[in-house]
């Protein structure tokens, strides 16, 4: 009885894990890796530009400047003392999960069909939004916890915990869950309807 109830509530997977799907997954992983390595630099520039706009929208006066440089995104503020070092954030940690998205979307039997390809780019665009939000959260966590007396003067205990906790959540769970959730919502093949009239 309970088993039948579970069967009614289960979402259809629409995926069979077999040798072919594993090969597609490996190919998707390889392609994703190649694209990631090839386009990481312009991608980080776009993240930095959008992250800066997002952060400045909540600043009064707007002072944060983000610049992608090598493998880091450098955080600068117009009110930082000239001589103080600028924090650099490792950008790859934020957005390497693009490779996971590519691999998961490749699980589908016809991964290059126009509809599926379109859904992949929609998911990739949403993942970019997640990356920009994660970058903004990381910058806030740096402001809240890493700048010594300045942090304590500008952020209370609750704000410090909130920003540090939010970024830690992204590092431990969010950055892996995001591609899975996007694939589940947009990339999983839709199984045929259960009943026909």
């Amino acid at each position: 009885m309970a088993r039948a109830k579970d069967a009614e509530r289960s979402p259809r997977l629409g995926i069979r894990v077999d040798r072919r799907s594993l090969l597609r997954l490996a190919a998707g992983f390889g392609v994703g890796l190649a694209v990631w390595f090839a386009f990481a630099a312009p991608y980080e520039r776009s993240m930095a530009a959008a992250g800066q706009v997002l952060l400045r929208a909540f600043e009064e006066p707007p002072v944060t400047r983000l610049e992608a440089s090598g493998e880091e995104i450098i955080v600068d503020r117009s009110d930082f003392p000239e001589a103080s070092p600028r924090p650099g954030l490792p950008a790859g940690d934020l957005h390497f999960n693009f490779v996971l998205l590519c691999a998961l979307f490749a699980l589908t039997p016809r991964p290059l069909s126009p509809g599926h390809f379109g859904r992949f780019w929609a998911a990739a665009a949403l993942l970019w939004v997640v990356h920009v939000a994660a970058l903004a959260v990381q910058v806030e966590s740096v402001y809240a916890t890493r700048l010594g007396p300045w942090s304590e003067a500008h952020y209370g205990p609750l704000a410090r915990n909130l920003w540090a906790g939010a970024f830690h959540f992204y590092l431990i769970a969010g950055r892996f869950a995001a591609p899975f959730a996007l694939w589940w919502a947009l990339g999983r093949p839709q199984a045929p309807p259960e009943t026909k009239s």
Binding site: S10, I15, L22, F29, W36, P90, G92, D93, F96, L104
Partner: peptide, 24 residues
């Protein structure tokens, strides 16, 4: 950063799919 973290997470997803497919 890229290779092993992705591989381990993908293995986790595949294990879930295998388990859920078994259920299906």
């Amino acid at each position: 950063t890229v290779l092993w973290q992705s591989v381990v997470v993908l293995c986790g997803v595949l294990l879930f799919l295998l388990w859920a497919t078994w259920g299906t």
